[in-house]
């Protein structure tokens, strides 16, 4: 474990708790893409299947359990409890356009042709594009609530910090996982224009609105 990965994990935890808190407090999931949340749920479930079989550390097990629980809770709030506030007219990104290619790629490009490894690879690839419906929704509505933009900033920062973690681990531990690195770079690049808007607008107290 290194500081970059730790801060990255905490940023990730902050992001998902921030979103859950926003939906719970405002009793509304307006501006939140349910499709992205479903895909994140899928990411955690397919990646953490080894939750009970492969014990790494208390920290690892606890975080995995929290991620899965918070993802399920968020999906429940969006599609059940506060379903009336779910903006399905703007959450129109076709998930199958992401899940099918990612599923195929996981079969073709992986480290080991075993069920667990292919599911892990699927999870890594899916995570890199899972935010697209959310970014697409913001581009359609033309704006995002400030709390939602903080959520996106924390979520985008987590994988950016993981890239630094991978550089660190390459130089100090001779470790690197090309699949995770390439997917992590794609994932972080997708946030770039959002990061720009966040830094130039939200950090100056303005609302995040896309140029119409």
């Amino acid at each position: 474990m290194n500081i970059f990965r730790l801060v990255g994990d905490l940023s990730h935890l902050l992001a998902i708790l921030l979103l859950l808190w926003k939906i719970w407090k405002t009793r509304s999931c307006a501006g939140v893409s349910g499709k992205s949340q479903i895909m994140f749920g899928l990411v955690y479930i397919t990646r953490y299947l080894d939750l009970f079989t492969n014990f790494i550390s208390i920290y690892n097990t606890t975080m995995k359990a929290i991620f899965i629980a918070v993802a399920i809770a968020t999906i429940y709030l969006i599609y059940f409890k506060f379903k009336a506030t779910y903006d399905s007219n703007h959450d129109t990104f076709r998930m199958e356009f992401l899940i099918v290619p990612v599923g195929g790629l996981a079969f073709l490009v992986n480290h080991d042709f075993t069920a667990l490894e292919i599911l892990w690879t699927f999870s890594i690839y899916l995570e890199s594009v899972a935010i697209l419906p959310q970014l697409f929704m913001i581009s359609k509505t033309g704006e995002a609530e400030t709390i939602t933009s903080h959520y996106l900033f924390a979520l985008g920062s987590y994988r950016a910090l993981y890239i630094v973690n991978w550089v660190y681990r390459y130089y100090f531990e001779g470790f690197f996982d090309l699949i995770a690195i390439v997917a992590g770079c794609v994932q972080t690049i997708l946030y770039c224009d959002f990061f720009y808007l966040y830094v130039t607008k939200v950090m100056h107290g303005k609302k995040l609105s896309l140029p119409a």
């Binding site: 492969n54 790494i56 690892n60 993981y162 470790f175 995770a180």
Partner: peptide, 10 residues
């Protein structure tokens, strides 16, 4: 290079 065999990352 060594792969992420022990999958210690989240």
């Amino acid at each position: 290079a060594q792969q992420n065999k022990d999958k210690d990352e989240l």
